Simulated assay, not measured.
Amino acid sequence: MMNILKRYRAVFFVAGALGILTLFNRELGFKAFSITGYSLKEMLLVIPPIFVLMGLLDVWVPRETMVKYMGEKSGILGILLAFFIGSAAAGPLYGAFPVATVFMRKGVKFSNILIFIGAWSTTKIPMFLFEAASLGTSFALTRLLVDIPGIILLAWLLTRLMKPAEVEELYRRAEDPSAKG
């Protein structure tokens, strides 16, 4: 019981703060509860399909295949695959992190994981099509041509700035989420 209280103390604190807010300002409190409920509903609609896809990826794609195509020696192919998978993905950015965890378990190179997350957040195909229709093709292409090298540069920079022990710790935690750092 104490573990549950300790683990979810932030949730209980926020719920209590919302309750107190509602006591002092009923309209604002109800609006906050409404926004919270909407966000929870949205997450409950997005997270399950992502976890199903993660499970399928985990079971269907052998580790050796992921290492071959996206591992340490994957080269340009790993970068292209990271961009393609990230750009073709659907859902909000918080959906990328569980997938990145599966990638870590499968031996994907750290920089390719960073490229995947960057692609998920900025180069999605539906976003590109929306921008092209709304803001013009030249804007959408310019943004894409700036984002792609930017993502690669940031992945390279973060890989160089992080200590190998920090990266190893991330991979270790991906293998065993209960491990404390």
Rank of each mutant, 00 (worst) to 15 (best):
Y69F: 14
K180H: 03
F103R: 01
M127A: 10
W120N: 00
L80T: 13
K6A: 09
R160E: 06
R7S: 08
R105T: 13
K124T: 11
K6W: 11
L170I: 15
A17G: 05
Y171M: 06
F130I: 15
F110L: 03
G95W: 13
T123Q: 00
R172P: 02
A155T: 10
S34N: 12
G136H: 05
V14H: 04
V59F: 12
A100Q: 02
L44F: 15
V102M: 10
I85K: 01
S178W: 14
M104Q: 05
V146G: 03
I151Y: 05
V108L: 04
P177Y: 07
P62V: 13
L161W: 14
I4Y: 11
V146E: 04
V11T: 14
I50K: 01
I115H: 01
V67H: 03
S134M: 10
L141W: 09
L45A: 06
A140S: 07
S39C: 13
K109Y: 06
D147K: 01
L77Y: 08
V52G: 00
N112P: 06
I50Q: 00
L21F: 11
I125C: 04
V108R: 00
P149N: 03
T65H: 05
D176H: 13
E64S: 05
L44E: 08
I47K: 01
G86A: 11
M2W: 14
A119Q: 02
L129F: 12
E42T: 15
R143F: 12
L77C: 08
A155G: 07
K180G: 00
I115P: 00
I4Q: 03
L21A: 05
Y8T: 08
L53R: 02
V52R: 00
A140M: 04
